[in-house]
């Protein structure tokens, strides 16, 4: 489903790689936590999957396609297979909940008929069926994130990428969002979630990939946020990064 082979990413104008020799494979239907300190390269990983950035070296396969071989004209069509959710929701403030979700279908040329079927469906999935005509500022943070998730899954993507989706939410609301993501995963969507939330990772006991300074230091099925050994390693790298 997703395969990284010796992927290194060095941003232009920086010396230290944001990702360094990463090789891993994520299978269809998995739920993967991406953990690591700030600046360790989690968002970079997700951006590479989305082909928002291209690797400096190494190859990435997503859904059977070599991302290095997709022409920039074809990238939008590739992205239609992926849903993305961010910490800051990224909703359009001047559109209603319904229109925010519908917008993502309109701009990829879906018919009005399809939109009127799919959007209420997605809103129901995330538990917002009564609030379709609200505007984002009339919703709580948790509800806004649900709108963002509805937008990400309305086109039934094979993969859902979530970059700290609970970063702005209190623990209880986060719990609701996680239940939602688990439900989406149970329906067959591969979910990759970058997070700092130790409680969530420990509770769900899913596959955990830990990144430190751009390197994968742990890839564990059914793991927690930290193993016994890693805090020391993290500290060491953390000091090195501070310079």
């Amino acid at each position: 489903m997703i395969r990284f082979d010796e992927v290194t990413k060095v941003y232009r104008g920086t010396a230290r790689p944001a990702l360094n020799g990463v090789s891993l494979e994520i299978l269809s239907g998995e739920f993967v936590f991406l953990v690591g300190a700030s600046g360790s390269g989690k968002s970079t990983f997700l951006r590479l999957v989305l082909k928002e950035e291209k690797p400096s070296t190494g190859t990435i396969h997503v859904l059977g396609q070599d991302l290095g071989r997709i022409s920039s004209r074809k990238v939008p069509y590739f992205r239609r297979n992926l849903g993305v959710v961010f910490q800051d929701f990224r909703l359009l403030p001047n559109k209603t909940v319904f229109d925010n979700v519908a917008f993502s279908l309109q701009v990829i040329g879906k018919s009005a008929g399809f939109i009127h079927e799919a959007v209420p469906d997605a809103l129901q999935t995330v538990g917002l069926d009564g609030k379709a005509q609200r505007y984002p500022h009339e919703l709580s943070g948790g509800e806004q994130q649900r709108v963002a998730i509805a937008r990400a899954v309305v086109n039934k993507p094979a993969i859902l990428l979530a970059d700290e989706p609970t970063g702005n939410l209190d623990p209880e609301t986060s719990g609701g969002i996680m239940a939602l993501l688990e439900r989406i995963n149970a329906n067959g969507t591969t979910v990759i979630m970058a997070t700092h939330d130790a409680g969530i990772v420990d509770r769900l006991q899913r596959r955990v990939i830990e990144v430190i300074g751009g390197r994968v230091v742990r890839d564990e099925r059914g793991g927690g946020y930290k193993t016994q050994a890693t805090p020391i390693v993290t500290q060491g790298f953390g000091l090195g990064d501070a310079r």
Partner: peptide, 8 residues
Amino acid sequence: IMRLVGAS
């Protein structure tokens, strides 16, 4: 958002 959701 358009780029994210794959608008051409």
